[in-house]
Computed example of a mutant assay.
Amino acid sequence: MYNITKDESKQLVLEIKELQLRINNNDTIATEMEQLKKQIQNKNDEMNTLKQEIQLKDEHIQQMERDIEITKKDFNDKEKQLLSHHEQAIKILEEKNLKLLQHSQALSKQSNDQNKEEDQKQPNNQDIPSSPALPVSITFNFDTFCTSSKSLKKCSGHTGAVNSIDYSTFSGHYICSGSYDKTIRVWDIETTKQIQIFNEHSNCVNCVKFSTYYYYNQRRNVICSSSNDKTIRFWDFKDNRQLQVLNEHTDT
């Protein structure tokens, strides 16, 4: 039998303790590695979530840019239409002004000719005054008309340009309006107060109209509207509710 000396015994004890320390250290390192793996996985998950959020924001920005382009195009089209209508109105006024001037000049010439004939018939009668001549020209000044005009009433509430209005002649004194702010509003023309608002359209409202059909056939106060969201809608502004949606259009 082999006998262990005290020194050898001490050495063995030290080696055993060192091995235990190494084992404990290895366990600690393994635990730390697991924790690091979990942290890395969490960071990867966070990065993936951020990537998804960035992608969604990019898509939202792209959609906003497309909406802005559509709005710009609509605005340019409306501006061209307004300019065209303005030019047509000026042209019509100029034509009417020219006709009025020509007619006035013709009347003036006719009056002068008549005066000359009367003077020739009565050459010795100097005391009888001749008939006064008509004005040579009568002109309509559009700028003077605009500056002399004044606003009678004002209805305020829309946050975007107003595209369309209609006046009710069969059920009280009301005006309805449709706007770029996607709303339809009803106003009491006597008090200029807003009495109703409808905001179900998802894009600008192009046209509004009081429905004579609903009023005379069903005795209901109904407004119909069309919008860039490709829908036509009917609204009962007395009962404050939407009656019907027509959404078969595929373009604005």
Rank of each mutant, 00 (worst) to 15 (best):
Q218A: 09
K238W: 01
S179V: 00
R185C: 11
G178N: 00
P129V: 12
T159M: 13
I195R: 10
S225N: 01
I189W: 10
V222I: 08
S177G: 00
P132W: 04
I128S: 00
T147H: 11
A161E: 03
Q120K: 12
N217T: 15
G160A: 09
I138S: 11
Q126F: 13
K238V: 04
D236M: 03
I195Q: 09
T231V: 02
H249S: 10
C207E: 06
D229M: 00
K209D: 03
G178R: 08
S130I: 11
T250E: 01
F142E: 09
S211G: 06
W187C: 05
N125T: 14
S156N: 09
T231C: 09
F140A: 13
I184S: 02
S225E: 03
N217S: 14
D143K: 11
N124F: 15
D143L: 00
R219W: 07
S211P: 13
C204Q: 09
D166K: 13
F140E: 08
I223V: 15
A133Y: 06
T159G: 06
I184V: 15
S156D: 09
R241K: 10
C224S: 10
Y174T: 02
T139P: 13
Y213C: 00
F210W: 12
R185D: 06
R233G: 01
K121Y: 06
Q120G: 02
V222S: 05
F210M: 12
K153W: 08
N206C: 07
T169N: 11
V205F: 04
N163V: 02
Q244V: 00
K209G: 03
Q196S: 14
G160L: 05
I165E: 02
V222P: 13
S202G: 11
F198N: 07
F170V: 15
T147G: 00
L246I: 14
I197H: 07
S151L: 15
E190D: 07
Y180W: 09
C176S: 07
D188T: 11
I184C: 00
Y216C: 04
P123T: 05
P123G: 03
N247D: 15
I175Q: 10
I128Y: 00
S149P: 04
R219Y: 02
H249I: 04
T147Q: 15
F198Y: 15
Y216T: 03
R185V: 04
V222Q: 09
Q218P: 08
I138E: 12
I165W: 04
D166T: 07
V186Q: 10
D239I: 08
P123L: 02
C155D: 11
W235R: 04
K238Q: 12
F237I: 05
L152Q: 14
N221D: 13
S137L: 12
E118V: 05
T250S: 08
F170Q: 15
D143Y: 02
P135N: 08
K121P: 06
N125K: 08
K209W: 06
E200A: 10
S149I: 06
G157Q: 10
K230W: 01
N217G: 00
W235K: 03
Q244N: 07
R233V: 01
K153A: 14
Y180H: 06
K230D: 02
K154A: 10
T147I: 15
N199L: 06
Y214S: 04
Y180A: 14
C207I: 00
S149V: 06
Y180E: 07
S171N: 04
T191M: 08
I195G: 12
H201I: 09
D181W: 10
K209Q: 06
L246M: 10
S179W: 01
F198M: 14
K150Q: 13
Y214H: 13
R241C: 12
G160R: 04
A161I: 02
